[in-house]
Amino acid sequence: MAEADWHIFTDSDINAYQGYLPDEWGENTIGPIPEGTVLERLLLDLALAWRSASYTAQLPATSIRAMHAAAIGRASFSSPDSSIVAYSEKIIAQLTGMVPELTENRALRTRLMESLATIACEFRDRASQVGTSIPIDPIWADFMNDPAFRLSLWSSQRIAFVAFYNAYEVFLIDCLKVSTGLTSLRTQMEEFRKALRNSLREDIADPCWFHGEINIALLVRHALSHNGGRQTEDLKKQKFDIKLIGDNLQIVPEDNHWMLRRLRKAVEKVIAVTRDAPKFIAPAAELPNPREDEN
């Protein structure tokens, strides 16, 4: 059976694979929300999903950074005097078994011990003067030449894109369930659109659902999840910047970054219209748990 002719595209810059969810976002966005409230719980659920997805997106690059850090640590290691003395003692002990005279001549044994320790210290001190600069770029480049590594890199961005978007959609639906009191709600339902426009103190339909970038993210998520990563007919009608090879979407870190920038703005809009709403500042115990997953 012939292998499929597949081509993939990955970003070659290791620095692109970081910063998906800024560390300060949670503190600045969720921190001011009253503890133990419905809104805080919904936001913490979202933050957990986003954070775990960001770790997935970062993992291939993180593994290389860990290897690099280990190499620098090993190269920078300097044996303490106690280790040199212990090592010298072991050498003398073995020599004593091979040269019995060392047992009888304790003065010679002592001189040998001192000489070994001195030589070992000299070697250690010379080694410590050698620079331990180990650039990460050549290590990264070597791994980028490995097909298995590049596939994991490529796949990590696709998986993360779907996870980032799905977490936002679940968050939005759960917020509307709280505002409407409905226990069953899907994005395809008319009740969902009505809830976006009418169930909160302000219409959030456009900034939080119908915004052009969110619509693109939805269509891309659908293509990745249900169409093998190939653009759908609906997606072909849209203008977007994601790279294509044939009809196959090539998700790179910047695609996840732009989507998260837009989704964070949408979440901040939801917070702005719910943070003082009685249903959202009620104790979180009033939120049904577990909630039905209908997405």
Rank of each mutant, 00 (worst) to 15 (best):
R150S: 08
Y165F: 15
M144Q: 15
P207A: 11
P147C: 03
A223S: 15
W258F: 07
W25I: 00
L59E: 14
G246W: 11
A93G: 10
R158M: 10
G131T: 15
N166K: 15
C121G: 05
H211I: 10
A93M: 02
I159Y: 14
E292D: 12
C208L: 10
S83Y: 07
L59P: 02
A148S: 12
G19F: 03
W50T: 09
D11E: 09
E35V: 07
K237M: 07
M67T: 11
L108Y: 01
L260M: 14
S63E: 12
A167F: 12
E292K: 14
A223C: 12
L219G: 08
M259N: 03
R201K: 15
A223K: 09
K177A: 04
T118E: 13
F123H: 09
A117Q: 10
V85N: 03
I245D: 09
S82F: 04
S76M: 09
L172W: 05
I251S: 05
Y20N: 01
E233Q: 10
R51E: 11
L46V: 07
L153S: 06
H7G: 05
I91D: 01
F9Q: 04
W140S: 01
L244E: 06
S155Y: 09
F280Y: 04
W258A: 01
M98W: 02
T103F: 04
G228C: 09
Q231K: 10
T96L: 00
T183P: 02
